[in-house]
Amino acid sequence: MDAVLETLMRSAQSEKEASTARRPSREEAEAAVRTLIAWAGDDPTREGLLDTPKRVVRAYEELYSGYRIGPETILDRTFGEIGNFDDMVMVRDIEFHSHCEHHMVPFVGKAHIAYFPVERVVGLSKIARIVDIYARRLQTQEHLTSQIITAMDEILKPRGVAVLVEAEHMCMAMRGVRKQGASTVTTQFTGVFRDDPQEQVRFMSLLRGLRP
């Protein structure tokens, strides 16, 4: 079985299983926050923490909103009035905030995406929204990179996609080895980007060479 198709099937099955599981109520979620506050060593009934569980649950609704949106709803509309344009489209410096699935602490960075359209293009803001959909879930940077490129490749069916993600992980900066400023870079390529090293070079040159 094609590796990309197998990945999509596994991802779809995992999301289906997650969606059919009973979602805790808001009251249960708030109670869980109170438990964690007490476990950390503070008093969840003191004045400054009384409303914290409600705030945390509201924040989670925003921080993890990506679970409620599918990429096909974002990339389903394309535009054909592009003349004879058939070269690379790049959107760089797409800022994102995500959370490490291992420690549930943030990692913050930028995604850079390029693709070769076939007759039709997608709105540029939709590319940024695809990053947000997957970033607003519990993640690893490697999986985030893979999900972005798979969605672009499978839904748009371009001649190739290139994705580079760079981020700083608070699970390294705040705890553990505590190496602040260390950055992680992940890349993935499909189509002409994967098959032609010169297109990878051009992608990197456009990404780095055009910076002020």
Rank of each mutant, 00 (worst) to 15 (best):
M1E: 15
A3G: 03
A3D: 13
K16F: 13
E17Q: 14
S19W: 03
R26D: 08
E30L: 03
T35C: 06
I37H: 01
D43G: 06
L49C: 02
L49R: 00
P53R: 11
R55S: 05
V57H: 00
V57T: 03
Y60K: 04
L63P: 01
Y67D: 04
R68V: 11
I69F: 12
T73V: 14
L75S: 01
T78K: 15
F79I: 09
I82S: 11
I82D: 11
N84S: 12
D87W: 05
V89P: 06
V91S: 11
I94M: 13
E95R: 14
F96H: 09
F96N: 09
S98A: 13
E101I: 01
H103T: 04
V105I: 12
G109H: 00
K110C: 06
H112W: 02
R120Q: 11
L124T: 07
K126M: 07
V131K: 08
I133W: 07
E142T: 10
L144A: 05
L144E: 02
I148R: 11
I148C: 09
A151P: 00
M152D: 00
E154Y: 12
E154C: 05
I155A: 02
L156A: 00
K157Q: 11
V161E: 03
V163M: 12
V163P: 08
M170A: 10
A173H: 13
R175K: 15
R175V: 11
G176F: 09
G176R: 06
K179Q: 15
G181N: 02
T184E: 00
Q188K: 14
F193N: 07
D195F: 08
E199F: 03
Q200E: 08
Q200I: 06
F203D: 06
R208P: 04
R208T: 14
R211V: 04
R211M: 06
